[in-house]
Simulated assay, not measured.
Amino acid sequence: MHYDAFWVAVAFFIFLGVLVYFKVPGVIAKQLDARADRIKNELEEAQRLREEAQAMFADYQRRQRDALATAEEIVAKAKEDAEIIRKESEAELAAALTRRQELAEAKIRQAEEKALSEVQNVAVEISIAAAEKLMKDNLKAKEAGALIDQSIKDLGSQLN
Results as ranks from 00 to 15, higher is better:
Lys142His: 08
Gly145Tyr: 11
Leu68Trp: 15
Glu83Trp: 04
Asp4Ile: 06
Tyr3Glu: 11
Ala53Cys: 02
Val122Ile: 12
Ser157Val: 07
Glu52Pro: 02
Gln61Phe: 04
Ile148Glu: 01
Val119Trp: 00
Asp4Phe: 06
Glu112Ala: 06
Asn160Ala: 14
Ala36Arg: 10
Phe6Arg: 08
Ala131Arg: 04
Lys30Arg: 09
Arg38Asn: 15
Ala141Thr: 12
Ala94Leu: 02
Met56Cys: 07
Ile108Pro: 02
Lys114Glu: 15
Thr98Asn: 09
Val24Ile: 13
Val24Arg: 07
Glu73Arg: 10
Lys77Cys: 02
Glu105His: 02
Asp137Arg: 07
Gln31Val: 13
Gln158Val: 14
Leu93Gly: 01
Trp7His: 08
Met56Gly: 11
Met1Thr: 06
Gly26Ala: 15
Arg99Gly: 01
Ile14Asn: 06
Gln47Phe: 12
Ser127Pro: 01
Ala71Glu: 14
Phe12Gly: 13
Arg38Ser: 13
Ala130Leu: 11
Ser89Ile: 05
Val18Asn: 07
Leu19Lys: 05
Leu49Ser: 15
Glu102Val: 04
Tyr21Lys: 06
Gln61Glu: 12
Arg86Cys: 00
Ile85Ser: 06
Gln110Asp: 13
Phe15Arg: 06
Arg65Thr: 12
Arg62Gly: 07
Ile85Cys: 01
Ala78His: 07
Ala76Lys: 11
Ala146Leu: 08
Ile152His: 00
Asp81Phe: 04
Arg99Met: 02
Phe15Ile: 09
Asp66Lys: 06
Ala78Met: 08
Ala123Asp: 02
Leu97Ala: 02
Leu49His: 15
Lys114Thr: 10
Ala11Phe: 07
Val122Asn: 01
Lys23Arg: 13
Glu73Gln: 08
Ser157Asn: 09
Tyr3Cys: 03
Ala144Met: 04
Arg99Ser: 01
Val18His: 05
Phe13Gly: 05
Leu16Phe: 05
Val10Ile: 08
Lys142Phe: 09
Glu125Lys: 00
Glu73Val: 04
Asp59Asn: 10
Ser89Ala: 12
Val20Pro: 00
Asn160Asp: 10
Leu139Gln: 10
Gly156Arg: 15
Ala11Arg: 12
Arg62His: 04
Gly17Arg: 03
Phe57Met: 13
Asn121Pro: 00
Asp33Leu: 08
Lys79Val: 08
Trp7Met: 09
Gln31Lys: 13
